[in-house]
Design a protein around this nucleic acid. Structure first.
Lengths: 232, 232
DNA sequence: GTCTATACAGGGATAGAC
DNA sequence: GTCTATCCCTGTATAGAC
């Protein structure tokens, strides 16, 4: 591919940006941001070196003064994405009020917020990871595993404490994680929700899904033990 | 790429198959099944014509006796995937007991079952859709929209009837759909759940998430070895 | 329908001047 | 660091014999 064959469809008009403080200065930063946009829209294999250089406003040969190969650009993005998510999840846990319910809500909020704040990065980190060689994918995979375990631990603890009621915490964690992950695919300025609306709503969904005994009295909550409103 | 550079990682050892009755006979069928596996693992742009022909056991030129271009092979898979899901959702609705709760459960079961029965197809249909030109992506997108509306209608009806309790049915439908969609990414013979365990469990999650007043005391899945797992 | 052979554009990457 | 120029391979697709 030399020039885009059709209008972007994979993601709508989302800001092309990276988390604070991680964009390299100068040309290397422009390469990385261009790659963020192009890899998200056309995929790693659907983006050529010349596409990438053109978007960054440089000659294709200049790329190799900053990265030894195209794959290294992807590797940097993938690692950045996984690092940012894991950092936010950890911070959310640290700052959360005590108790599994509050912690689960905090984790889901953080996950949704991360994917809504940087949908392009989340998309590339997840959907293009497979294009990396095993050794360059490994660091991201390790972070992903750690992130997954954060949620799983909270769910297991909540079940043990009788706060959650799920037969299988692993499956519940998977389901909850899936909700948030997918946010990167549709969140953008062309839809009616704010980042925090989605984050709060999804946190509520997660608690409901987990059968939390003490779902905070949001609009969506129902009275525990209430008689079925009835019927259809 | 001429030969796989590393072991498949995007999906584990999942059967390479298409829904009953849709695999074309003869060489065309072998091309389609090879494409299913390769596109799922390496992506459309990560798979060359020669890869595809080699996997199908033919010369690359022979491909063009069956498809006018590589993109048409992908288009067929993407359409097959979306068609199969939509067909199953419709059938599930038709066969479901009356009432939004039973209907939502049936929809989620059908979605999960479809993605667990044909994870490769679901992956290609969703993750590689962006590689199609707009006009060849359109039919699949139309089907996707119709499928989405099935779930949305059930949720809205349930809210109107007081069976569900969500402030925003669209967001709830999105969250529920996201859970099931992701199943294609991890379901396989290397994990402890049966298709029906996941389907039933996820259906229960959906009802909980939607704040269903009358969540049926359904069987919930367990990992084998814990307590006797049941199935439906 | 399938093959061998090949056209030829585009791919990733390097050499070497500035 | 950046460019021009270029190498060489891989990519898609076609021609034409069998």
């Amino acid at each position: 591919m030399t020039t885009p064959r059709w209008e972007p469809r994979r993601l709508s008009a989302v800001a092309v940006e990276l988390p604070e403080g991680v964009t390299p200065p100068g040309t290397r930063g422009r390469i990385l941001l261009s790659a963020l946009r192009l890899f998200a829209e056309y995929g790693f294999h659907g983006t050529s070196i010349r596409d990438l250089a053109g978007a960054a406003g440089i000659n294709s040969a200049t790329l190799y003064a900053h990265y030894p190969a195209k794959e290294h650009v992807l590797a940097e993005l993938v690692l950045l994405g996984h690092t940012e998510l894991h950092r936010r999840l950890q911070q959310a846990l640290v700052e959360a009020p005590p108790g599994p319910a509050a912690q689960l809500a905090a984790l889901v909020r953080a996950q949704v917020a991360a994917h809504a704040d940087f949908p392009l990065l989340a998309l590339v980190a997840n959907a293009e990871l497979h294009a990396l060689s095993p050794e360059r994918a490994a660091p991201a995979l390790a972070l992903r595993e750690q992130s997954r375990e954060l949620g799983l631990r909270v769910l297991r603890l909540g079940v043990a404490q009788g706060v959650f009621h799920v037969a299988d915490p692993l499956l519940a964690a998977t389901a909850i994680g899936s909700m948030g992950m997918q946010v990167a695919h549709w969140f953008g300025p062309d839809q009616p929700y704010t980042r925090d609306q989605v984050a709060d709503t999804y946190a509520g969904y997660a608690l409901q899904l987990a059968g939390a005994a003490d779902v905070p009295a949001k609009k969506t909550a129902r009275a525990p033990g209430a008689t079925p409103a009835k019927k259809g």
